[in-house]
C-alpha cells in the first residue's frame, strides 16, 4: 500500500498572519513570512492542528501527490 503524505496548505491570499498556527504546530513547521502570510516547511506531516486553530480557516490538510 502506498504511503500517503499529507501537508498543510495555506490559502495565503486570505491569510491574516496572526500566528495562531505557529503557536500550535508541534514541529515548528509553519512560520509567518515577514508579516505577510504563513509558510509551511517540508517538516510538516499534516497533523491539522494549524488548520483547526486558524481563525480565518485558510489552512487545509491536503494529500500530497
Amino acid at each position: 500500500m502506498p504511503v500517503q503524505r499529507k501537508k498543510a496548505v495555506v490559502e495565503k491570499d486570505h491569510c491574516v498572519a496572526c500566528g495562531c498556527c505557529v503557536k500550535v504546530c508541534p514541529l515548528g513547521a509553519i512560520q509567518i513570512d515577514r508579516g505577510r502570510w504563513a509558510v509551511v516547511s517540508e517538516r510538516c506531516v499534516g497533523c491539522g492542528r494549524c488548520a483547526n486553530a486558524c481563525p480565518a480557516s485558510v489552512i487545509s490538510v491536503e494529500v500530497q501527490p
Binding site: 491574516v16 498572519a17 496572526c18 495562531c20 508579516g35 486553530a53 486558524c54 481563525p55 480565518a56 480557516s57
Partner: peptide, 16 residues
C-alpha cells in the same frame, strides 16, 4: 474560532 477578531482586526490589517 477563539481568535476570530484577528480576521478583521484593524491593527492587524494595517500592520499586514
Amino acid at each position: 474560532k477563539p481568535r476570530s477578531w484577528c480576521v478583521y482586526c484593524p491593527m492587524g490589517a494595517m500592520t499586514q
